[in-house]
Simulated assay, not measured.
Amino acid sequence: MDHPDEHCWSIGELAAATGVTVRALHHYDSIGLLQASVRTTAGHRRYTRQDLQRLYGIRTLRSLGVPLGGIAAVLDQPGGGPESIRNLLQRQLDAVGGQARQLDQLQQTIRELLDRINNDGDAAPALFVTVLEGMSMFEDYFTEDQRRELAERRAHLGRQATEDARTEWAGMVEEGLRQVDGGIPATSPEARDLVRRWDELGSRFHSSEGTKEAARAMWNGNSGELSKALPWSAQQMQALVAHLQGAREAG
């Protein structure tokens, strides 16, 4: 039906005025998200000012990454559904936060891989395999919440502090291996001091016992594979872990 007293837009005019393609408008129509309120006697679509306002709402929510299904559920609420919009945006904010953390993890992994390739370019193919294996193990042993916790802790520390911690950790590994090679008992003051500093360093990245236990389980189950990415052999690292555990139990 025509509405002679109200300004209406054809689908082409609406596309030109809003920057939304005709194809997108046809898609919105087909899924019931935005259907023209008016049809001419010849059956042509005509969009009203109310339709235009709905389209702007769609574009706004789409720009925030909200899926079309979620947009329809909100816009179809009486009065615009303020509470539904709030809940939708909160869910979207949570989802974006999760994506940001995943991107942070990916960025860190890429940086680490680049650093290692730059240090040993000939080993690049092997490094790719090692990194992929490590990522798979990480997902097997740590829950999604634990992975998020670790990413948040690392982001809070910052890249420089993380690199400094790695350097400090490598120094403690060398110190521990010297104790093992020198036959220093795990009950000695030197060993107990080392494990204290070792655990303090780990606490910078682990805010709960759950992530610590997951890390130990991953190492215990995959020490051989994980050692491929380290400058020390699996046997050396296993001996060091046993030495530290003995010192930890000795108090």
Results as ranks from 00 to 15, higher is better:
residue 1 M to K: 12
residue 8 C to E: 02
residue 11 I to E: 05
residue 12 G to V: 07
residue 16 A to Y: 11
residue 17 A to C: 03
residue 20 V to A: 07
residue 21 T to I: 06
residue 27 H to S: 10
residue 33 L to F: 03
residue 33 L to H: 03
residue 39 R to M: 02
residue 41 T to C: 03
residue 42 A to Q: 05
residue 43 G to L: 07
residue 44 H to C: 02
residue 44 H to P: 03
residue 46 R to S: 06
residue 47 Y to E: 10
residue 47 Y to V: 04
residue 48 T to A: 06
residue 52 L to Y: 09
residue 54 R to D: 06
residue 55 L to G: 10
residue 61 L to W: 13
residue 63 S to N: 03
residue 65 G to S: 13
residue 66 V to K: 03
residue 66 V to T: 02
residue 68 L to A: 15
residue 70 G to K: 08
residue 73 A to M: 01
residue 74 V to W: 05
residue 74 V to N: 00
residue 74 V to Y: 02
residue 76 D to F: 06
residue 84 S to P: 09
residue 85 I to L: 12
residue 87 N to C: 11
residue 88 L to Y: 08
residue 88 L to E: 13
residue 92 Q to K: 04
residue 95 A to H: 10
residue 100 A to F: 09
residue 104 D to N: 11
residue 106 L to P: 03
residue 106 L to E: 05
residue 110 I to C: 04
residue 111 R to F: 10
residue 111 R to S: 10
residue 114 L to G: 06
residue 117 I to T: 14
residue 118 N to H: 12
residue 125 P to V: 09
residue 131 V to C: 05
residue 134 G to E: 04
residue 138 F to C: 10
residue 138 F to T: 13
residue 140 D to E: 15
residue 143 T to N: 07
residue 146 Q to G: 00
residue 147 R to L: 04
residue 151 A to E: 02
residue 151 A to P: 08
residue 152 E to F: 02
residue 153 R to A: 11
residue 154 R to A: 09
residue 156 H to K: 12
residue 156 H to D: 15
residue 164 D to N: 11
residue 168 E to G: 00
residue 170 A to K: 01
residue 172 M to E: 09
residue 173 V to R: 04
residue 175 E to D: 12
residue 177 L to K: 09
residue 178 R to M: 10
residue 182 G to F: 01
residue 184 I to S: 08
residue 184 I to T: 13
residue 186 A to F: 08
residue 187 T to C: 11
residue 189 P to R: 04
residue 190 E to M: 07
residue 190 E to V: 05
residue 191 A to P: 12
residue 192 R to Q: 14
residue 192 R to V: 11
residue 194 L to A: 08
residue 194 L to Q: 08
residue 195 V to M: 03
residue 195 V to A: 07
residue 196 R to S: 14
residue 196 R to V: 12
residue 196 R to Q: 15
residue 196 R to M: 08
residue 196 R to E: 15
residue 197 R to W: 09
residue 197 R to Y: 09
residue 198 W to N: 03
residue 199 D to I: 15
residue 199 D to V: 13
residue 201 L to N: 07
residue 205 F to K: 03
residue 207 S to W: 05
residue 208 S to T: 15
residue 209 E to L: 13
residue 210 G to W: 02
residue 211 T to M: 15
residue 215 A to I: 01
residue 218 M to Y: 09
residue 219 W to H: 04
residue 222 N to Q: 12
residue 224 G to M: 11
residue 224 G to P: 12
residue 225 E to T: 14
residue 225 E to A: 15
residue 229 A to H: 00
residue 231 P to M: 02
residue 232 W to D: 12
residue 236 Q to P: 02
residue 239 A to R: 13
residue 240 L to D: 03
residue 242 A to T: 15
residue 244 L to W: 03
residue 244 L to G: 00
residue 246 G to P: 00
residue 248 R to V: 08
residue 249 E to M: 04
residue 249 E to T: 11
residue 251 G to V: 07
